Simulated assay, not measured.
Amino acid sequence: MLIEQAAYANRWRGVSPAAKAAFALAGLLAAFAAVSPGAALRLALCSAVLTCVGAGVPAGLYLRVAAPAVGFLGLSCVGLLVAVDPDSGWRWAPEAWPQVAALAGRSLAALAALLGLVLTTPLSDLIALLRRLRCPAVLLDLMVLCYRMLFVFSQAVHEVRTAQQARLGDATLRHSLRSLGQLTANLALQVWQRALALHLAALARNGDGSLRFLTPQFAHAGRDTALAVLAGGGLLMLARWPS
């Protein structure tokens, strides 16, 4: 829920999602076009600074959201530095460091570009943008339903955990394992029942078409998009600048 918290509370909330998506796309292209790991790291730093300083996303929240992806990337890079030889078996492969560094730098730059988009744009705005881009309605409906079910799932977890803690369900290791099993079974049942109820409610309203929502209007959308394209061009130039 940290992503939604930042998406609704940042200073770029009123900026057109098309502009933010164009800038994020330019960041992704720049990440792949980076001439060196140093250039990719500059791109990642630039995108992170723009998100935290320009959009006003707290640095602590940004780091908490980025930490799982960065940790996964670090573990992947360690795995890429291990080679298997038929004779000596497992060994470190320092000769692969240039390729690993390039991969890590580009991945960080791409991650920063995507975080700049999702931390400043609510999912409802992104879905409205995708609908204007003629994305399949079935895909968008699935995105909306999964998004809504995440909040239902989170609330159900909170309610069950509160009830278990009130009954000292974590008093011992045995009780904790039993509570975890009951939590898993209860959540599976609750999510299935609520999804079925949502489907029946849609059928009762003759909901045989795509889901529709009010599309917000953004002032100065053309100006924002033009500025985003110019800033994206700056990122592409920065990516080609030698270290």
Results as ranks from 00 to 15, higher is better:
3 I>C: 06
6 A>C: 05
11 R>E: 00
12 W>V: 00
15 V>R: 13
15 V>F: 03
18 A>K: 11
20 K>W: 09
21 A>L: 10
23 F>L: 15
24 A>I: 02
26 A>N: 06
27 G>V: 02
28 L>W: 04
29 L>W: 01
33 A>P: 01
35 V>P: 03
36 S>M: 03
36 S>I: 00
40 A>V: 02
45 L>M: 08
45 L>D: 08
46 C>F: 07
48 A>C: 06
49 V>W: 08
52 C>A: 06
54 G>P: 04
54 G>I: 03
59 A>C: 04
61 L>S: 02
68 P>K: 06
78 V>R: 05
85 D>L: 04
87 D>K: 08
88 S>G: 10
93 A>I: 04
95 E>V: 11
96 A>S: 09
97 W>N: 02
98 P>T: 04
99 Q>A: 14
103 L>E: 03
106 R>D: 05
113 A>T: 03
114 L>E: 06
118 V>S: 06
118 V>C: 08
125 D>E: 14
133 L>H: 08
134 R>K: 14
136 P>M: 10
137 A>P: 00
140 L>Y: 03
145 L>W: 08
145 L>Y: 01
146 C>K: 09
154 S>I: 10
155 Q>A: 15
157 V>S: 09
158 H>C: 12
158 H>V: 13
161 R>P: 05
161 R>Y: 10
162 T>R: 15
166 A>Y: 10
169 G>W: 07
172 T>E: 05
174 R>Y: 09
177 L>H: 10
178 R>Q: 09
179 S>M: 04
179 S>E: 04
182 Q>S: 08
182 Q>H: 09
185 A>G: 09
188 A>F: 12
189 L>W: 14
193 Q>W: 13
193 Q>D: 14
195 A>H: 12
196 L>R: 14
198 L>T: 14
207 G>V: 13
208 D>A: 15
215 T>R: 12
219 A>P: 07
219 A>N: 11
221 A>I: 08
224 D>A: 15
225 T>N: 10
226 A>I: 09
226 A>C: 13
234 G>R: 03
